[in-house]
Structures are given as structure tokens and as C-alpha cells.
């Protein structure tokens, strides 16, 4: 069957709305998107993560992340029962190309995907001297690359190591929670490609979002809660050794 763009638009009105902005893209983003009607977060289900690295690769492709820097990455933990405080952690190339085979030696082994926590009380936006990084009204921590000085104070202030200096732009760079996608009704690139559903985009202001039921019925944690950052990436089934 002959598929044309016109036909696609007719077929799927929901996608059509997004498509107008997909390639042409206007500064206002997709219509009907109200900044104050959303509060974005993410759910990571650790027992579902298989460490395939799809999210890392998709993120790099979607966002043009330079080689050697990571907006999202995966860590592999190995915790022997007698030293829970000293886990062995590795993340070769951020887990972009998966992980080498690992013998099951009786300890506890699991993968932990990491990304910006889009903290509600983010230390990184707090320290920016000029207002080049900020929390958007819909709860996403963003960087204005045409305003950033490249002083890197925000990189120092992030307790999670989520920021880096982009060598192409010489400005701070980080996960945008695929802001250009979520404002068009799409999910993030990492969530889109996650084959096991270990990553789920969530809108905390949407009462119909399944996140609410999930948070109610599961023991969910955030990373480094003692940092009091108001992190909005929630981890289900996270071991105490994760840091």
C-alpha cells in the first residue's frame, strides 16, 4: 500500500498534531500544551531492567549527545552479601553497548539506569549565577544553551553526576526529559525504546497517570534522599547499596 505523509496525517489525528512540530518545529511547541498543567517525573523499575543499553543509545541519537558524555546511563551493581556498603559498580561506556557477560557468583546483581532526577529543589539551578538553567513550570530542569556561561558550577552542584560540559557548545548539558517530545504528546526516547518497560515517563499532575496507583502500591525510593533535592525520578525495587 502506498503510504504518503498526507495519509498518515489522516490516519492518526493525535500523531498529526505532533507531526506538524516534529520536523518543522515552532518555538511555542505543540498547541494545547499548557505549561502549568503538567509536572513531569519518571519511574524506574529496577527489577525489570536488563541492561541492554537501548535507552543510552536512543538518548544519544535523539539528543545528539557527544560520545563519552551521558544524559542517561546504566550502572551494573554487584553486591556480595558481606559488604553491602561496598558494592562493585561498573558502567562501561555508560552501558551504551550493553554489559559484558557476568558470572553469577552468588552475590546480588542488578542494573540501575540513571538520568537527571529533575529535582523540584534542584541544587544545580540554585547555583547558576545567571539563570541559564532553570526548572520549567512543568517541572523539567533545562539548560538555556544560548545563555549559559559555561562556568560549570551546576556540574559541581549536582549530587548525581548528571551534568557535563558539552564540548560542542561549551555549555552545560543534561537530560531534558526529551522536552521536545513530551510537549508534543510523545514519551521520552529512552522510555520509547525500553523493551521491558523498566522506564516510564509520568505526569504527576495528570490524575489518570498510572504512576499514582504505582506509587501507592509499591515501596518506591529516590536517589540520595538525604540531599533533600526533591528528586522526581522514582526507583522501584532499589537496593540499599545504590548510590
Amino acid at each position: 500500500m502506498e503510504i504518503t505523509r498526507r495519509r498518515l496525517l489522516v490516519l492518526l489525528p493525535a500523531a498529526a498534531v505532533a507531526w506538524k512540530y516534529v520536523l518543522a518545529g515552532t518555538p511555542e511547541g505543540a498547541p494545547n500544551y499548557e505549561l502549568t498543567k503538567h509536572w513531569w517525573a519518571m519511574l524506574i523499575d529496577i527489577p525489570k531492567c536488563i541492561g541492554c543499553g537501548s535507552c543510552v543509545r536512543a538518548c544519544a541519537e535523539e539528543n545528539d549527545v557527544p560520545e563519552g558524555y551521558y544524559r542517561t546511563w546504566i550502572e551494573r551493581y554487584h553486591v556480595a552479601d558481606w559488604k553491602i556498603e561496598r558494592p562493585e559498580v561498573e558502567s562501561p561506556d555508560g552501558g551504551k553497548y550493553g554489559f559484558p557477560p557476568h558470572a553469577d557468583d552468588g552475590g546480588k546483581n542488578f542494573f540501575v539506569p540513571k538520568l537527571c532526577n529533575h529535582c523540584a529543589d534542584s541544587p544545580c539551578t540554585q547555583v547558576c549565577p545567571v539563570g541559564a538553567t532553570f526548572i520549567s513550570p512543568d517541572g523539567v530542569v533545562l539548560v538555556d544553551k544560548s545563555y549559559c556561561l559555561g562556568c560549570r558550577y551546576c556540574i559541581q552542584a549536582c549530587p548525581y553526576g548528571c551534568r557535563f560540559l558539552n564540548p560542542k557548545t561549551n555549555t552545560a548539558d543534561k537530560c531534558t526529559l526529551c522536552y521536545h517530545r513530551i510537549t508534543k504528546g510523545l514519551t521520552t526516547a529512552c522510555c520509547e525504546v525500553c523493551p521491558t518497560g523498566a522506564r516510564q515517563l509520568a505526569d504527576l499532575k495528570n490524575p489518570k497517570d498510572p504512576i499514582h496507583e504505582f506509587l501507592k502500591t509499591h515501596a518506591v525510593q529516590i536517589l540520595k534522599p538525604y540531599m533533600a533535592t526533591g528528586a522526581k525520578v522514582f526507583y522501584n525495587g532499589m537496593d540499599g547499596s545504590v548510590r
Binding site: 549565577p129 545567571v130 539563570g131 541559564a132 556561561l149 559555561g150 562556568c151
Partner: peptide
């Protein structure tokens, strides 16, 4: 050290 020294005046214009 700045990635964009030409923007350093922003420190005075829009101090956070």
C-alpha cells in the same frame, strides 16, 4: 575558564 567568556557580563545583568 568560562566556556563563553563573552557572556560573562550576564553575571551583572541578570544575577541569580
Amino acid at each position: 575558564h568560562l566556556g563563553h567568556p563573552e557572556r560573562s557580563l550576564e553575571m551583572y545583568l541578570t544575577p541569580h
